[in-house]
Simulated assay, not measured.
Amino acid sequence: MNEFELIQRYFTRHAANAVLGVGDDAAIVRPTPHHDLHISTDMLVQGQHFFSDVSPYALGHKTLAVNLSDMAAMGATPCWAVLSLALPQLDKTWISEFSEGFFKLAEEHGLSVIGGDTTCGPLTLSVTIFGETPPGQALRRDAAQAGDDIWVSGSLGLAALAIQQRLHSNPSIPDSVIAECTQKLEYPTPRVALGKNLLGLAHSAIDISDGLMADLGHILARSNVGADIWFENIPTHPWLANNRRAFAEIITAGGDDYELCFTAPYSAREKIAKLAEDLCCSLTRVGRIEHKKNIRLTDKFEQPITLSNSGYTHF
């Protein structure tokens, strides 16, 4: 099987929302008139972003999920993606399962794969994704305002705990907890519906990929504000919550959560509570945006908590 047979067999699907999809020198798309176009790229490298023995189906899911999460963070509707793969060998079983996981998630979000590339090399997966928002309505990092509530979706720290357990096994952690955390690591849920429903409701947003403290820090820097974060309010797995202080960095800075962090005015609290109910997605208020240009993490006695690590870094 050569490169072109691989593309035709495993990665060529009907692109209902494209003028021309896979098979030519370039794809052709026709964006919705008078909408803003969003473009984002993410790369996953074996050994840096995922373990070598992860199932190819799960890896296909996650490869797209992390890109959908970027669209969710801006309230964008995902439309198209291009997928580029560096593969160490042409393993038909592996490729078949990977593409199945990838396309299942794509179909759930009405997203079309319209092109990409393949080559031989260390296992590397790269997606460029395109989405749309009504003009001027996108959620951005530079619009947080002093007095805003800070919210997060879902639970934090689970994926990071799974990674730590894999690297440094801790026999005190129950197997059932590790199983739940591994599921969260391998099958993150991109909060696309939440992001779209936050348009006009939230002021700013970001997806939590490198840890809450690091990613919230990007909002603060772009918006020229600070924040108080209430450690006890940060939602996490019940087992982690019962051991919260021992795993403070896992919860606040572990990364790989792919939940949303967003800021919204006090007046939006009731609507956000209703949104959480409608979407069956937990939304938790974890802090407040402040005028001062620093970020404080405090315990229930309002005492500062110091972290040695503020988030995941790629280098």
Rank of each mutant, 00 (worst) to 15 (best):
V66W: 09
L185M: 14
G60D: 01
T119R: 10
Q183W: 13
H168E: 14
N243A: 05
M1P: 07
N197Q: 14
G115W: 11
Q183M: 14
N309L: 11
I163D: 10
L123N: 04
D91Y: 06
E100P: 03
L158A: 08
D42M: 10
V82C: 08
L220D: 03
T306Q: 15
S204N: 11
F11Y: 14
G75L: 00
A16W: 09
L275K: 01
S99Y: 10
D24T: 10
L20R: 08
T12P: 01
E186Q: 15
T124R: 08
P134M: 12
K196S: 10
S69G: 09
L199A: 02
S223F: 05
L307Y: 04
W239R: 04
L194H: 06
G226R: 10
L297V: 15
T63R: 03
Q164E: 15
Q183I: 11
L156G: 00
Y187K: 12
C261L: 13
F247S: 05
D24Y: 14
A268R: 08
F130W: 08
K274A: 15
D299V: 10
L198F: 00
G110D: 06
L220Y: 09
H291P: 02
P56I: 05
L220W: 02
D210N: 13
P135L: 12
I28N: 06
K104Y: 08
G110P: 08
N309A: 11
Q164T: 13
T252K: 01
D70H: 14
W151T: 10
L111I: 12
D42Y: 11
R244D: 01
D53L: 14
G211P: 01
A86P: 05
M74L: 07
A202H: 03
N242V: 13
K271T: 09
G115Y: 05
V45D: 06
T124I: 07
T236W: 12
T306F: 15
V54L: 12
P265A: 14
S155M: 15
A248H: 07
L6G: 03
E290A: 09
I150V: 15
A65S: 03
H14K: 13
D215F: 01
D70Y: 13
Q183V: 12
T298K: 13
S55K: 07
T252A: 08
G287L: 00
K271C: 04
E290W: 07
F11T: 01
I251W: 05
A146C: 10
G154V: 03
G211F: 04
S308H: 14
L194C: 02
P88H: 07
E270M: 13
N2W: 07
L44Y: 08
D142M: 07
A159Y: 07
E302Q: 15
W230N: 10
Q48N: 09
D175G: 12
S55F: 06
A273W: 07
I114L: 05
C281V: 15
P78G: 02
V113G: 04
L111P: 00
E107G: 11
H38K: 10
A253Y: 11
F4A: 07
F130K: 06
